[in-house]
Design a protein around this nucleic acid. Structure first.
Length: 277
DNA sequence: CATCATACCTGTTCGC
DNA sequence: TGCGAACAGGTATGAT
């Protein structure tokens, strides 16, 4: 569920709290949640956290000496700030779904993940992108290099339906099920439409829909449908502004018709038969 | 190589 | 009401 806007919200929370702090140690409460082929938390001890950046739905924490901690929340992952001396600090037992805990000087960070799909990787040097899957990501849709021209080139690079295209992280990075459905509603395009069938005006509208739905999500600190909370455990408000996601069977906010829900590209997909063609 | 379906998990919701 | 089935969905992997 955390998609680009939710991950961006978390990164913006974490930066002022953790950047500049020294890593002290870490614990993995679930072996499969922490991936490190060559290094342990002890190797990272004493290194200062230089910066925290988002790439697609991944979070990278860059430390001194080229160490990189990478986090992917997948569906139910959360990063929760634990203040020094507060509940859950060092010495306390892990919380129910806490899988990894990172201790920095004066402040700790808990990685919680009910379904254990998410991961924390520890790497050193430039190959962290290959080790984590970041290397396969496509363009960043909130950066300047994402323009209509290369969006159209990406559309032409793939076959199949437009929903599968939007979910394909190797084309445009960071879109998930929520923002894919919202972008398609914005553009007035049905999710099953074959990419080859898109007209020029529809491509342009879809490009705008991707940018608008993502930037609105960021502005509102993410969509908290079920799991998402920011690093302080607070919910975002974008769920109040969604047109289609999670609204199957309800009235379309634009035309009043009943929204359809069906499976497209293997995902629950909501759209309006009236407003999308 | 590209695309598609499935596995990975566990709590919640749905249908009988 | 109870219980099992279906669902939630991001990505790696295997199948096609």
């Amino acid at each position: 569920m955390p998609e680009l806007p939710e991950v961006e919200t978390i990164v913006r929370n974490l930066r002022p709290i953790f950047e500049g702090r020294k890593f002290l140690g870490g614990e993995a409460f679930n072996a499969s949640s922490f991936v490190s082929e060559e290094f342990s938390f002890e190797d990272l001890a004493g290194k200062k956290l230089i910066s925290i950046e988002r790439r697609g739905k991944f979070i990278n924490m860059f430390f001194e000496d080229e160490f990189v901690l990478t986090v992917h929340l997948r569906m139910t992952g959360r990063l929760i700030v634990i203040e020094e001396g507060g509940e859950g600090e060092e010495g306390e037992n892990p919380q129910k779904y806490e899988r990894v805990r990172l201790h920095l000087k004066g402040m700790s960070l808990g990685f919680h993940d009910l379904r254990k799909f998410g991961k924390v990787w520890l790497n050193k040097g430039g190959d962290y992108e290959e080790k984590t899957g970041i290397g396969r990501l496509g363009i960043e849709p909130m950066r300047r290099e994402f323009d209509l021209k290369n969006f159209e080139a990406l559309l032409a690079s793939r076959k199949g339906n437009v929903k599968a295209f939007l979910l394909d992280q190797s084309r445009v990075a960071g879109i998930g099920n929520i923002y894919a459905d919202e972008a398609l509603f914005y553009a007035g395009i049905r999710p099953h439409r074959d990419l080859k069938s898109l007209r020029e005006d529809e491509k342009k509208k879809l490009f705008e829909g991707v940018k608008c739905s993502l930037s609105q999500g960021i502005e509102n600190c993410g969509t908290s449908f079920s799991d998402f909370v920011n690093a302080h455990g607070e919910k975002g408000s974008n769920q109040e502004l969604l047109f289609v996601y999670g609204r199957g069977g309800k009235k379309c906010l634009r035309c009043g018709g009943i929204l359809k829900k069906e499976k497209v590209a293997g995902r629950g997909t909501v759209y309006c038969e009236e407003c999308q063609e």
